[in-house]
Amino acid sequence: MSIRAEHEIHSRRKGRNVGIGLMLAGFVVLVMMLTFVKITETDFTRAPGAANSVTGSEASN
């Protein structure tokens, strides 16, 4: 009895691997999109700690 190159177990494993691969790819895309949104939505022009000083000046008024 010879070993076939493509056994049924291989095709089943392939299906599982492709599935996991697609999920990982989706995760990468999602993290990329999240990063893009976070960067573009956040006001990076403000100096670190500026948010607090604004609140502080408002509180003193």
Binding site: H7, E8, I9, R12, R13, G15, R16, G19, I20
Partner: peptide
């Protein structure tokens, strides 16, 4: 190799 435990219990996605 069909009857090996690994083949029988291999979980699908």
């Amino acid at each position: 190799i069909t009857n090996t435990p690994a083949a029988e219990h291999e979980a699908q996605l």
